[in-house]
Amino acid sequence: MTAFRAAVLEHFRHPRNRGPVDGATVSIDGANPLCGDRIRVQLRVAEGRIAAVGFTADACALCIAAASVLTEHVRGMSTTDVAAVDGAWINNALGGEPPRGRERCALLPLDTLRRAIAQSLDAAP
């Protein structure tokens, strides 16, 4: 088994930050319309930082693994610094690139997180 596959399975079986966030200040749903992956990313943003982050998903192992490593990474980060996180970071965190045609699965959590942060910034006083 490759390191990538082992990492995906480990995060799929034991996902970090799965579940709703108490006192979430923003909640955004994302979907891959053709494969049917569905995810909800919730944040509690305080003083420009991600105080808490969680996700709920009916999604494939790759999507859940990506959400798991991503939420671990951004917790405590300033919302502006999250802009530096990209697909390459996720690939690196999982130890490899997703199989051809599965890139959207790995990117769905990041895309949804970015939209959540954008909404949070829009709502900021």
Partner: peptide
């Protein structure tokens, strides 16, 4: 979870069609 599948055209006899996070 897929809007293009759960359509009234494909399911004229269904009482309800629900698209979203299936477990919820």
């Amino acid at each position: 979870g897929r809007e293009r599948y759960a359509t009234r055209e494909r399911f004229p006899d269904a009482d309800e069609l629900c698209v979203g996070m299936p477990s919820e």
